[in-house]
Design a protein around this nucleic acid. Structure first.
Length: 138
DNA sequence: GCCAACGTTGGC
DNA sequence: GCCAACGTTGGC
């Protein structure tokens, strides 16, 4: 079981859309490191859904329900996507400012590599953030 | 709107 | 293979 954080600009694809759609293909990744992370995802892995740019906060949790397959929005088979399913919102979204100000989270890949759109999350970070966000899932 | 941090591209 | 120029992401 691995944990992840995936970013989306809410103007492009928001958490609200994810909830409405249920299962959604996570397409459009065009960065090798992010692609490698997508490929490493397994069914049942959980990921934070992060709104970048305008909101800058973790808003919910999704579950990987289909492992990497060729991204239909890309030419050829070079890039991949996974399918993710909404698993519940954070009752209390955790902002980037909060993450930055918390020494417990200072090692997060989100902070160390701000441009990486699909990043791993440590189990300790996952547990801590779920408490902060009051995630109602399990 | 600006800019830092990356990534990519293309000339040499 | 190096590196300058350019493009993109995302925070501020």
């Amino acid at each position: 079981m691995q944990y992840w954080l995936i970013k989306s600009e809410p103007e492009t694809f928001s958490w609200q859309q994810q909830v409405q759609n249920g299962v959604e293909p996570w397409t459009g990744v065009r960065n090798y490191q992010a692609r490698n992370n997508l490929s490493a995802m397994r069914c049942g892995d959980l990921a934070f859904f992060y709104h970048s740019v305008s909101d800058k906060e973790i808003v919910g949790v999704v579950e990987v329900v289909r492992e990497a397959y060729p991204d239909p929005t890309a030419e050829g088979e070079k890039w991949v996507c996974v399918d993710v399913k909404a698993r519940g919102a954070f009752a209390n979204p955790v902002s980037l400012a909060m993450i930055k100000s918390d020494p417990t989270l200072s090692e997060m890949a989100l902070l160390r590599q701000s441009r990486l759109s699909v990043a791993p999350v440590r189990e300790s970070e996952w547990t801590y953030l779920c408490q902060l966000g009051q995630w109602q899932g399990k």
